[in-house]
Each structure stands twice: as structure tokens, then as C-alpha cells.
Amino acid sequence: MSLSHTTGEILLREDKEGAVYLTLNRPDKFNTLSEAMLSVLQRELEAIALDPAVRCVVIGANGRGFCAGHDLREMRAHPDQAYYQQLFRLCSRVMQSVVALPVPVIAKVQGMATAAGCQLVASCDLAIAGRSASFAVSGINVGLFCSTPAVALSRCISPKRAFDMLVSGDFISADTAAEWGLLSAVTDDDDLDTAVADKVEQILSKSPAAVRFGKSMFQPQRQMALAEAYDFAGNVMAENMMSPDAGEGIDAFLGKRKPVWEQPGH
């Protein structure tokens, strides 16, 4: 079953068989992350985090570009440091909410993703782009170093490549972004919808519990020292082993049959 609704029209949401599709819907503004857009995104992410029936999230966009970052006109209309601090806190909260979601988040990227738009791609667990997509953290070109995008970018690609992008403002192609680790896959533009749908279907075919255990472990352990990470991961894996799905999956493997996973929300 598929359910669709709008969230203030600047963000569209569709729920379909365990997957939530969030679509940035300011195509005439290249889907810039205005204060309103960030607020509604945060609200939806918080709702998704509390819904046990959600198993995957896709963040996409309408129009020729994925996201051109912050709304510069809106920012210039509020020349106040306290306002900027609040805005960047809100944006940082959205990015951290993406990382903290208990299910995988896929960025579906067409056209350009710049500045905070590139940050959003870097914050997602997976990112699939059409081959004509391009990426930059180009605030430096208008006198603004992309400091908050640098946090996500430098955790996604090597520090030297990240700093080069940040200090030059240069665009990189989708193929280069995949080579550097910003993207998990690149496809022909006409095949982008299919590639994302195939990845969603693949995730939905796995144990919902195992995927949630994996998401809860993967991001936090990246920030830990090696011994701490192994201790944390071992505890998560032991808890995962106690889940009904792990017992079912192993028994199915040994019995050479297809497993039947527990369905959340049922």
C-alpha cells in the first residue's frame, strides 16, 4: 500500500511498503534548505524515528537539481549572528537526525548537490546518483567556508580531498564522487529510479531487526577507538543473536529454506 501526503508542500512524503520517500519540493529554488525546509525535514525525521514499521528512507528532490544548499537570499535577509547560529544549529540537527535514524537512509541524487546539499548526501548511509550529477562545497566562492558541510564531508571522503573541495569550491563528477566514497553507486540518469528501487527492495528483503541492529552499531562505532568499537559491536551482535529473526535465519540456512522474518508493526 502507498500513502502520499504533503508537509507544507515544500517537502513531499510517500509511504510505500515499509519505505518512506521524502522529496524536497522547491524545484524553482534548486531545493535550497530554507529555515522552513529544515524545520519540516526535522519534523518528519523525528516522526520516522518513532515508527517501527519504517524500514528504509529515501531522500530525493524534484527538479533539475538535488539541493543547492542554504537559501542565501533568506540568509542575507537576516544579517544577525544569533540568527545564523540558530540556522546552522537547525541544519546540524537535521544532518545528525539522518545519521541517527534507526533505518538506512538513501540519497537519490540528480543534478547538482552543493554546500549543505552535498552535506545531506554525505550524511546519508547510502547515496545513488545519476551520472550527470555533480557535487561541490562551494561556499568559498562567495566568501563563506562551508564549515558545517565539512563535518559530514570529511567523515565520508579523505581529509585532503575534502579540504581540497572546501578550499577550491570545485565541482566533482558523479563518477569521481563514487571513486572518492561520497556515493555508493552511479547509474545512467534514466536508470536512477530503478537503481534506487532495487536497493530499497534489497533492504526490505532482509531481516528488519538485523538491519536496525546494524544501523544502531555502524555509525557510532566509527567514532570510537578500536578496542571500544569491538566491545560495542560485540555486544550489539550478541543482542542481535538473541532476536527471533537471527534464530529463524540460521535455522532456515541450515534447513536450506527461505527465512520468514518478523514484520515490525504487526
Rank of each mutant, 00 (worst) to 15 (best):
I59C: 09
V109C: 11
Q219R: 04
A113I: 12
E14C: 09
T32A: 07
V236N: 02
D71Q: 08
P264I: 03
V142C: 14
E262R: 10
T187Y: 04
K16R: 15
G139N: 08
C146P: 15
L204D: 03
L90P: 02
G234M: 04
L45N: 04
G214N: 07
H70K: 05
E179N: 08
K256N: 13
A127V: 05
D71H: 14
A162H: 03
C146W: 04
A113C: 11
R161T: 02
S39C: 00
T176H: 13
D198Y: 04
W261M: 10
C156Q: 12
T176M: 14
A47S: 12
P208Q: 07
V151S: 03
E9K: 14
G169Q: 11
D28I: 05
A225S: 09
D188P: 01
S243Y: 06
D191I: 02
N240K: 09
S154N: 06
I128H: 04
L166C: 13
P159K: 02
I172Q: 13
G111M: 11
C56N: 10
V236G: 00
Q81D: 12
S243D: 15
M224Y: 10
A82C: 02
L38E: 07
G65V: 01
H78P: 04
P220D: 07
A61G: 08
G63F: 04
M95Y: 12
T32Q: 15
S92I: 01
L126F: 09
K258D: 08
A122C: 12
N141E: 11
A53H: 07
D190H: 08
M37S: 06
C118V: 02
Y83F: 15
L204S: 04
R257E: 11
A77G: 14
E9H: 12
K108L: 06
E262Y: 01
A61L: 07
S154D: 01
A177M: 12
L45F: 10
S158W: 00
A107L: 11
S132G: 00
A209T: 12
I10C: 14
E201G: 13
T187R: 07
L153I: 09
P220C: 10
S243W: 05
L45V: 04
S168R: 11
Y230Q: 08
E201Q: 14
F171W: 10
R89E: 14
A210D: 04
D198P: 01
A127D: 05
P259H: 03
E248I: 13
Q119T: 03
P104K: 06
L50Q: 15
K160G: 00
E262W: 01
V103W: 10
R155M: 02
A210E: 09
L183D: 10
L41H: 00
K29C: 06
V260P: 00
Q119V: 03
Y21H: 14
A113M: 10
E46M: 09
I48V: 12
M112E: 10
N25A: 13
S243F: 03
N62P: 00
A61Y: 04
V94K: 07
G63Y: 05
S173C: 13
N25Q: 05
G130P: 05
D188Y: 03
F213V: 06
V105Y: 07
R26G: 01
A133K: 03
Y21N: 03
Q223I: 01
E201K: 15
E248M: 13
N141D: 06
I106T: 05
S97Y: 03
A68W: 12
T176S: 14
K29Y: 10
